[in-house]
């Protein structure tokens, strides 16, 4: 079943296009990583899906409804980000107490045990939390809603290393116990790729890649060896990335294909992180091109 359906979605901020024709569909009960560089449009997309902001043109459907001002979407989805706010007068305990009347599948037990585990103070006010503690609390809140569509925007920002890995573990355990559709955006693909089933890579407000993680991992190969041989092999091919290693050796990344085995050139795998990075970079040589 389709949870999210976007067709040619566009959103402009003060004349600048944040989303520039996004088209994709998300199947239910998958963990999808929303990957892209800063300013790619990840946050804008998530906010439209949550019904917080309105698209300028194109079609967007969540559970077959337009998300803006839709009660069904609001009741079954949550967006966890660092702008998540709660009234200044309520303590963390008050907030957790209020949640079940809104979220019908709220898991109070889970919220309480995670709350204890991460040693949060129930009497603390939300706006007074440190960046890391706020991120932790918001994450607990998001997991405990058990919303059919659970979205996280850079959830680990501000968390320390240990909390990050605990978060990813908690997310996986929750997903296994109560499968739901999870969309999670991050700059750090490597730290969460073990959790992901699919990757949605966006760049400059457009979808670049929407494939399973395993496919992305096998999307490209790197050729490394003598400059002339590498150049011969990669001529007429779509080169994603290129780098001169030393005076006579070159490193080039191309889309994967069979029968590349040639002496003098080693073939290496390219990690999903690198594939995403190369596919969204302006120049084939990366930062090195600037200094040529």
């Amino acid at each position: 079943m389709v949870v999210i359906d976007c067709q040619n979605l566009q959103k402009k901020y003060k004349g600048m296009a944040a989303l520039n024709g996004i088209t994709f569909q998300l199947e239910d009960h998958k963990i999808t990583g929303l990957i892209g560089r800063n300013g790619a449009g990840k946050t804008t997309l998530l906010k439209i899906l949550a019904g917080f902001i309105r698209e300028n043109s194109g079609e967007v459907r969540v559970f077959s409804n337009k998300p803006f001002n839709n009660l069904r979407v609001s009741a079954n989805s949550i967006l966890v980000d660092d702008q998540m706010s709660f009234p200044d007068s309520l303590t963390l305990a008050d907030i957790l107490e209020a949640a079940p009347s809104f979220y019908k599948r709220w898991d109070a037990g889970l919220a309480a045990s995670l709350f204890d585990y991460f040693r949060l103070n129930p009497k603390q006010l939300h706006f007074k939390l440190s960046k890391g503690a706020k991120a932790t609390f918001n994450m607990i809140f998001g997991l405990a809603t058990r919303c059919e569509l659970t979205m996280f925007d850079e959830p680990t920002n501000g968390m320390d290393e240990a909390v990050r890995s605990d978060f990813y573990r908690a997310l996986l355990k929750e997903y296994i116990a109560y499968p739901r559709s999870i969309l999670i955006s991050s700059h750090h693909l490597a730290e969460m790729e073990h959790l992901l089933e699919d990757i949605l890579l966006i760049h400059k407000g457009k979808v670049v890649l929407h494939q399973s993680l395993e496919e992305v991992k096998e999307y490209a190969v790197a050729l490394q060896g003598q400059t002339d041989i590498v150049e011969k092999l990669t001529a007429e091919k779509d080169v994603l990335h290129i780098k001169q290693l030393d005076s006579h050796r070159k490193y080039a990344v191309i889309k994967k294909e069979d029968s590349l085995g040639v002496e003098g050139v080693t073939i290496q795998t390219v990690s999903a992180t690198d594939v995403c990075m190369f596919m969204t970079s302006e120049r084939k040589g990366g930062i090195d091109d600037v200094f040529k």
Partner: peptide
């Protein structure tokens, strides 16, 4: 903060 908190919970 008050307006936005409504959207941390369910509501239109």
């Amino acid at each position: 903060t008050n307006w936005h908190s409504d959207f941390s919970f369910v509501g239109t």
